[in-house]
Design a protein around this nucleic acid. Sequence first.
DNA 1: CTGGATCCGCTTTGATACTG
DNA 2: CAGTATCAAAGCGGATCCAG
Lengths: 138, 138
Amino acid sequence: MAGTRTRTTPATEAADPYAPCEDDCGIRDVLDRLGDRWSVLLVVELAKGTRRFRELQHAVPGISQRMLSVTAKRLVRDGLVERTVYPTIPPRTDYRLTATGRSFAGAVAALADWSRTHKDAIAASRDDFDTRHPDEVR
Amino acid sequence: MAGTRTRTTPATEAADPYAPCEDDCGIRDVLDRLGDRWSVLLVVELAKGTRRFRELQHAVPGISQRMLSVTAKRLVRDGLVERTVYPTIPPRTDYRLTATGRSFAGAVAALADWSRTHKDAIAASRDDFDTRHPDEVR
DNA sequence: CTGGATCCGCTTTGATACTG
DNA sequence: CAGTATCAAAGCGGATCCAG
């Protein structure tokens, strides 16, 4: 399927200039985690310290109980978050980053930094684009 | 709406102790823009050099013509990619990263690096989790 | 308090066909 | 070659109810 190498273009390039390692270099793995709406936000919040279910829900405005539950579970499965349940009454559950999770938080922080640095430029570019292409659907 | 309970809820939750800066520290901006399935892959590919429409489609296995078109246009709008059209026959269009785009590619590279370093650990964690929770739906 | 189970709508994505 | 237009499918995410 994807292995179809139909190189119809003779091109002047000698060796394969494309596909050096694996096309995506494994980025897909992170993307699947970054792709969803809440994973990163949760990790960022947990990077500040251990949190309980309720606390997380408050710290991440807009997240529903369901998505918090689902997302947290997924992070636990991936080994980024550790869950500790205290069989008390009422129940209490603590969430905290694992070593891998903290590592990930660091990597994400760099991206967040990039975001803050370029958000204005992006907004400007968009605005400019929209001004010159008012007929676009969008 | 919150059911009118026996105890009038203190509607105003007071300022929660959490919520440090802005909740997400601006990560939402990047995520909303590049959190989709293809943007990052396209940027990574373009980081290797200028590419034509066809070349991109080949370089990113699985992407449909439509998504390539849509994603590329969005990147152009955000100022991360530059598009050059040659009104020849047959037509030819070159895509290349802008300065901002290259900057972003750099940030992503760091994340990709993280991914490669921890992908095994994540896979192991998942496998382990699934083994101990075979009853889960997933 | 901490979630799991359901129902359901919206957005994203994919397949296909058509145009310049 | 380089897209655009349309339609249908899939997945994500929200609201709600219920259980431990």
